[in-house]
Design a protein around this nucleic acid. Structure first.
Lengths: 139, 139
DNA sequence: AGGGTAATTGCAACCGGGTTGCATTACAAA
DNA sequence: TTTGTAATGCAACCCGGTTGCAATTACCCT
């Protein structure tokens, strides 16, 4: 993905394009797996942790990416699809592979509806499946 | 719940009963909400953090309690039902109230089955619903 | 182009949950 | 009572996440 495309993606979400933001978005879009803050730190030796942190926060706020708590203790991030507003019906299942320790979006697997007890209201749902991914099972 | 009952619960899970363990289990069984390590620290000024930590770990290992990652950043714990082996079919949905910041087991709400893409195997599933609990909606 | 303002970035330090090593104490078996 | 093992307490550490502040950069207006 070239810079013009990246800038367009940023602008669509009302995020001012900067060099760091382009690079972070590039990594996030090109990675098949969800990416953590420390992943980014290691990818860009020159960029500061807090800059990267704030970049992720900005992206998340503007719904360019969503965060994933896969239970590993470190938050991961992945790009939202273009029309995503992070509403309950935009949500999908995430998968954590216990072998390669990577986390993926299962974009095609939406979260089943759940019947709450009376009196409970629903704002959002997270669903994380742990197991072994197809790649690791093959290998 | 008296000490004899607590000891029995511990022994059933092959955990040697000690004073600290009785107290921790007592708190865990009497609380309606899931309890964090720091919750325990504040409840027992005298008991050491690492002792409480190791107590929770022991309980979890022996499947007397299960841990809940509700996305708040701090792990919570709740007692398992007597016959629980923490298998996929023992799992239930957890609820995090965004108003009172408390986490509950919805023991009666089991986790729906989910269709994984081909090649993926399933070991466990976590499902956390965020919203407002019935208590907070009444108030 | 130049000046002023706001946003972004970098640095350093901090915070809190989780975790570990090691010394001490309690307990149980011989 | 002695001896070995498990539990506890204390201190320190690790790491992800977060913040304050200063330095830099981008942007807008004239």
């Amino acid at each position: 993905m070239n810079n013009r495309e990246l800038d367009k993606k940023l602008s669509l979400r009302k995020i001012k394009p900067t060099a760091v933001r382009e690079l972070v978005l590039k990594v996030l879009t090109e990675e098949k797996k969800a990416v953590s803050l420390s992943d980014l730190e290691h990818k860009f030796d020159y960029a500061d942790k807090s800059t990267l942190y704030r970049t992720l926060k900005t992206f998340e706020e503007k719904k360019l990416i969503h965060s994933i708590d896969d239970g590993s203790g470190t938050l991961k991030y992945a790009v939202c699809h273009d029309s995503c507003e992070c509403n309950p019906n935009d949500l999908h299942v995430h998968f954590y592979c216990t072998r390669c320790k990577q986390t993926f979006c299962l974009n095609e697997v939406s979260i089943p509806t759940v019947n709450l007890p009376v009196g409970f209201s629903l704002e959002s749902v997270t669903m994380v499946v742990k197991g072994v991914c197809s790649n690791c099972r093959k290998g």
